[in-house]
Design a protein around this nucleic acid. Sequence first.
RNA 1: GCCGAAGUGGCGGAAUUGGUAGACGCGCUAGAUUCAGGAUCUAGUGGGCGCAAGCCCGCGGGGGUUCGAGUCCCCCCUUCGGCACCA
Length: 825
Amino acid sequence: MSGYDPKAIELKWQARWSAARVFEVAEADAARSRFYALEMLPYPSGRIHMGHVRNYSIGDAVARFRRMRGEQVLHVIGWDAFGLPAENAAIQNGVEPRAWTLANINTMRGQLQRLGIGYDWNREIATCLPDYYRWNQWLFLRMLERGDAFRARRLLNWCASCGTVLANEQVVAGRCWRCDNPVTRREFDQWFLRITDYAEEILDGIDRLDRWPERVRTMQRNWIGRSDGATVRFEVTGGGGPIEIFTTRLDTIFGATSLALAVEHPQLLPLAAGTPQEDAVRAFVAHEGGRSIEDRFAEGAAKLGVFTGRHAVHPFTGEPIPIWAANFVLMDVGTGAIMSVPAHDERDHAFATAYGLAIRAVVVPSSGGAPPGGDPFTEDGILRGSGAFDGLPSAAARERLAAIVAERGIGSATVTYRIKDWGISRQRYWGTPIPVVHCEGCGIVPVPDDQLPVLLPERAPLTGSGGSPLAQVPEFVETTCPRCGEPARRETDTMDTFVDSCWYYFRYCDPRNDRVPFERSKVEPWFPVDLYIGGIEHATMHLIYTRYWTKVMRDLGLVALDEPVAALFTQGMVIKDGAKMSKSKGNVVDPDHMIDRFGADSTRLFSLFAAPPERDLEWSDAGIEGCFRFLGRLWRAFETARALLPAPGAPAPSDADRGEARALRRKTHRTIRRVTDDLGPRMHLNTPVAAVMELLNAATPLIRHEAGAGEAWALREAFETMAKILAPFAPHVAEELWEGLGRDPFVATAPWPVADAAMLVEDEVLLVVQINGKVRGKLTVPAGLSEDAALEAARGDRNVSSHLDGKAVLKTVFVPDRLLNLVVG
RNA sequence: GCCGAAGUGGCGGAAUUGGUAGACGCGCUAGAUUCAGGAUCUAGUGGGCGCAAGCCCGCGGGGGUUCGAGUCCCCCCUUCGGCACCA
């Protein structure tokens, strides 16, 4: 060993780990405790960024720790390799998506290997390979058989810029999640997955995900958006009804003075037909329907409407009430139609005021106060003006009314969800072909299993517009019907890439299976995932889809588990100068540059040390230098100490238990305990790094020529401990130290150190003396001192006694070996 | 509006159960070494007062519980995030 040269040692140990297959797992070992450490698989965009470094450093630290604790650890990486950027690259640079993607994977794999992340590379997968996506197709066909997958014409989100439809999850504030362009609504024939069938189970399951962040659980609850209410059907005078509305305030139904339908409501135009209002309604629909979602539903957007020329019959009063079309009624909420109760809803109130509709108050505050004039009263209260229901509190009235409505056969108590069925059709090339055939005679025919995979053609014309590129590839489109043998057309849409990531980590357990997606027996030893690490941005999309997918696979008999992930960890972002790193802001730090300058160990160490892993991390060049300096300090200290150290495994000399040697040994064992706790469920990865620094600081003064045999022994123990507890964080330096200590490779598989209980017991402790809760003295006393003796020692302290002078001690609080508080009058 | 997370030195952040607030690192100051720069080593570093011993103030603000509160309870403020014309 000479000066600390990260480049040399990192390459050396990476090669040795690989040759010795340190991170490979052949089969799950039933005799051992197992740990599945999983990081969200990356999209192969080109190069890894600091967010990846942080993600994988966290995962590798935990995986390496678990491995050293004797557990069998599954730690794998793969590539979320389908997606739009590959097509954009093709359009812009003329590179084939496949070639572009595979080249990126090669680059990024090399970068991960340079970082020394301990993956089992034999299990690596890429979702764009037929080996993988054929099982997307196979699973889709099983879902089709069960009715989980279905085709329907629905109003969907359309991104003109990406030239494709988007799932609701992919629309953020009315804009495309990827390109930020305004999204519009259009009707399409699409493939859907019936996630709403599982909405209740997905929602209930959140309660049991007690090792998931509260933040994510809340986001998922909000996303699913359960709403308890009732549907009621209103008859229409002169026919054309009934119109079904949804409300959560059935108690206010006597205050309903009109109905309002969404612009897209299928009954709207038929109702208006033939009335004097028909033209006005048509114009309104045309105008509102053409506006973008962002525009139409912006905060403070005007509530516009038009009378349809028709009336509904109020089911309780029998009075006719006008039916309107209104732009603030959303087609995909409830039934797309509401009863308008201006006295008890702010939106209805604004609408009624604008158009001169009747306002009838039917709920008064239960406090007995007068109903407030002017503003609508939107809280629960006591019914009045509601016939037989007067005097009932709102909650009771809702129950009663729901029962009566059900009895009369005009409605029922109903639960609706904000979450919608997952539209998975994409008009893109670079994705999994949906394995069905459209036949003139037979309709939609699934591709038989033995004809899978439906291969993506080598190339397709990519222009970025004009619908599905696959439709332009005759040799793909033209086929024969698997059922009748007549000429037929293949489905030309591909699957949303979120399908790919729903089950990839099941495939890691059985990555080369060519018979089924995975063997149940290979998956079950590893599931549920012990720790899943990734960004918060996947809280609603990926993490809801994969929970859903798991439940479907369970119901298909593929697995026997309800939830795939036991513990979720959401890491913070890596930011620079207060903003997320991005090319446009020019604040990107390239991991490769950091590895060149400081080495992989310093880069990893800093990404763990600089902030708790769940919080945002502000990148700091000075900070990573500090980590590099620490490793240099450790290196030099060890080089100096080496000559002093006893042989590996030498028995402790008697004076290893005295004086400074004993103090260092105590520090060593306290450090072991602390780091072991932190790396466990606490997931504190920044404090163990600090603990190793402290241990080095404590050991350094003992490194001197006149060190005695006991001190030298304690030094060996300290350095062996540092090598081991640093192994999850800075694995290359740790191996080099371990080798320098004369130990057999590898520290990566060496047993994790165990704190010696005897070494954790202090014989001298610092006793804090307080007077009236304020610290007035700190005494070093023998451990286990009695209260009386502590009191006596405290009185002997000059400062303490000066504060006690002439005052009576009213009360004494004594915490053995810690604190003595004297309350004086 | 509803829901959630978080507020600690100049900075990133420590503080297992209520018991020494500020570990560790960065930065800064002084010194050593060096031709110089850099690197390294040593010491110091929350604010105020004091020659010193020491005292006072300090974890977003205000109350409370307690011998004792960063930690528990109540109210408020700020920041960030999710949902939101959701019927």
